[in-house]
């Protein structure tokens, strides 16, 4: 195996494009090294992107926040402005693993690992985040919900690397929230999860919303009917019930070691409702 640690994105793209055999990007390593340990993958080349300066920064721009691919989730939690703007996304990122994992893991790694149970992904989807992808043919921007195709499989092409995540600017009177269900308080993978991002108009009426669910399908889902169910409402009980029903309808989970179809479908509704209430409050709704 070869270990490469390029200094620039261009260098990384060249390495990834030219590499022979199985090539993997190393960001935090909290998924990659686990899969190597278990013998599930045996890379021929590993490209460590942590020495690329531009990928190590969180930038506030006119377009919102640009989060570099090598930025650890712990760093996101330490960025007060980001926490204020996107509390749901940061909370989701900070739920991944222990403090030890937080010091390493990244939201881009979480996204590219393409697990349906990834914590930060539903939150990013609800936030309307975009992945900045660099490749041999230049840059392209992809909605985060389009990165994962199925468990472990992404839409990235040979030589491509996600350089950063673009979060939109924080809208006035908006709020987001993410909740997951795990049997333990920490060190667990989401059995089911829900993220809600919403914006309020006059009198606390929801004017815009995005709802995403995790671990209820082969990939994290953007559930448009669930958003529709609460747009135009003040998140009254009726709207919450409709939100829950839309989430239930979107669920297509499996029975596995972590949960059952019945449990996931039921708890997805509970979490969607609870997350919506938190987001609503954060947006200034009462």
């Amino acid at each position: 195996m070869l270990y490469e640690s390029p200094q620039t994105t261009t260098e990384a793209v060249t390495l990834l494009a030219k590499a022979k055999g199985k090539v993997h990007v190393l960001a935090g390593g909290s998924d990659l090294l686990v899969r190597m340990k278990g013998g599930y993958i045996e890379p021929d080349v590993i490209v460590d992107i942590k020495r690329i300066k531009s990928m190590n920064a969180v930038k506030k721009t006119a377009d919102g926040y640009l989060i570099g691919a090598a930025v650890s989730c712990a760093q996101l939690g330490d960025n007060a402005a980001l926490v204020k703007a996107w509390p749901g996304v940061v909370e989701a990122a900070n739920l991944i693993g222990s403090d030890q994992i937080q010091g390493r893991c990244t939201i881009v790694g979480n996204l590219c690992n393409a697990s349906p149970a990834a914590d930060s992904v539903p939150a990013m989807i609800a936030a309307g985040a975009t992945a900045i992808v660099q490749g041999p043919r230049g840059e392209r921007q992809v909605a985060v919900e389009k990165i994962a195709k199925s468990p472990g499989v992404t839409s990235l092409k040979k030589g491509e690397v996600v350089e950063a995540i673009q979060l939109p600017p924080k809208q006035k009177k908006s709020g987001d929230a993410y909740l997951r269900f795990t049997p333990r308080t920490e060190m667990d993978i989401a059995v089911v999860s829900a993220a809600v991002n919403l914006t309020l108009g006059p009198k606390g009426v929801i004017t815009d919303a995005r709802v995403a669910l995790g671990a209820v399908a082969p990939k994290a889902l953007l559930v448009k009917p669930a958003a529709k169910a609460i747009i135009g409402s003040t998140l009254d009980d009726d709207a919450l019930d409709k939100l829950a029903a839309a989430c239930a309808a979107a669920c297509d989970p499996i029975d596995d070691k972590r949960g059952t179809v019945h449990f996931r479908t039921k708890v997805a509704q509970v979490l969607a409702k609870r997350a919506a209430k938190i987001a609503y409050q954060r947006a200034g709704g009462k």
Partner: peptide, 12 residues
């Protein structure tokens, strides 16, 4: 593994 064989953690 300790991820899915869930022994109690400190915060539990």
């Amino acid at each position: 593994g300790f991820l899915d064989y869930r022994i109690p953690v400190c915060s539990d």
